[in-house]
């Protein structure tokens, strides 16, 4: 028999104070941050005529600037393409090293993962700024920066895909005496190839966006023109550039999405 009292006193409600304290703490952190960086809404309101002025001067967009910047836009696409490709090539060995079900050497896998995580913390623009200092102000700096940046994304997504593969084919290959390379080539690769290609395309989409701004730190592409147009306060040109980049990004996204849908 259950000994439940039907009309007994209700259990006390859990105190809500910890939750309130947590919220207050959160707001305090936000407030301190805002004060620390001098975020004053008044500054924004006082300068709102600057904002209005900026918007007014943006229209109509300087459409002729699109023709001027097309070579740079093509360079941007080239940079993204080559950066993604080089990154893809280098990410192949790294992703196998990071997958727990491929290499049984625990320390090697963990070390590779730490290395990959450290690599992923460095933003693309910082890499570009450093490589622009090493290689000079040229698209080459952008390509190298994007390659390294791509390794982080592709290897991370791919090694997670590798860890989720079906073990059956691998076991049967081990059973018939395949060596490690055969094991990877015929057991692992066919299973992850569609995912891998899809991740490469996804990275390409990210890289197009990244490549469009690398020029701001001197690493080639259309970003150089943003700097120039803003320097001359030519906001109509800036708007033309923004719209141009937007259209190119959307078109490439659509193509890439179509291919990815077919793959998976």
């Amino acid at each position: 028999m259950m000994d439940t009292k039907l009309n007994g006193p209700l259990p006390a409600k859990p105190s809500r104070w910890p939750f309130y304290f947590f919220l207050i703490g959160l707001f305090a952190i936000v407030l301190i941050s805002a004060i620390y960086i001098g975020a004053n809404p008044l500054t924004f309101i006082q300068n709102s005529d600057n904002m209005v002025d900026l918007f007014v001067r943006m229209f109509p967009p300087a459409w002729s600037y699109i023709a001027t910047t097309t070579p740079a836009m093509l360079e941007t696409i080239r940079m993204a393409l080559l950066g993604t490709t080089i990154g893809m090539v280098f990410s192949i060995p790294i992703m196998f090293l990071c997958a727990r079900n491929i290499f049984r050497l625990r320390w090697l896998v963990e070390l590779s993962r730490i290395g990959l995580n450290v690599l992923r913390t460095i933003p693309d623009l910082l890499l570009a700024a450093i490589f622009a200092a090493i290689l000079g102000f040229s698209p080459l700096a952008g390509i190298v920066a994007l390659s390294i940046f791509s390794i982080g994304i592709i290897a991370k997504l791919s090694f997670e895909a590798i860890e989720n593969i079906d073990n059956g084919p691998l076991e049967s290959m081990t059973a018939v005496g395949a060596n490690k390379l055969q094991w990877i080539a015929f057991g692992v690769v066919p299973q992850i190839l569609p995912h891998f290609v899809s991740y490469v395309l996804y990275t390409f989409e990210i890289n197009i966006r990244a490549a469009a701004i690398l020029g701001l730190v001197g690493a080639g592409g259309i970003g150089v023109f943003y700097d120039r147009a803003l320097g001359f306060f030519a906001y109509d040109q800036v708007l033309a550039l923004i719209l141009y980049t937007l259209v190119v990004v959307i078109i490439i996204d659509l193509i890439s999405l179509k291919i990815r849908e077919k793959l998976l």
Binding site: A34, I37, G38, A39, N40, T43, F44, N47, S48, N50, M51, L54, L125, R209, A212, I213, L216, Y226, L230, F233, V238, I242, T245, L246, V249, I250
Partner: peptide, 25 residues
């Protein structure tokens, strides 16, 4: 989503002047 943070920052620098506030906006 298609506007890069950096481009927005460049525009906000023109509005509120260079500094962390522009970055935060």
């Amino acid at each position: 989503r298609t506007l890069p943070d950096i481009i927005l920052a460049l525009l906000f620098i023109k509005v509120v002047g260079p500094g962390a506030f522009a970055g935060m906006l």
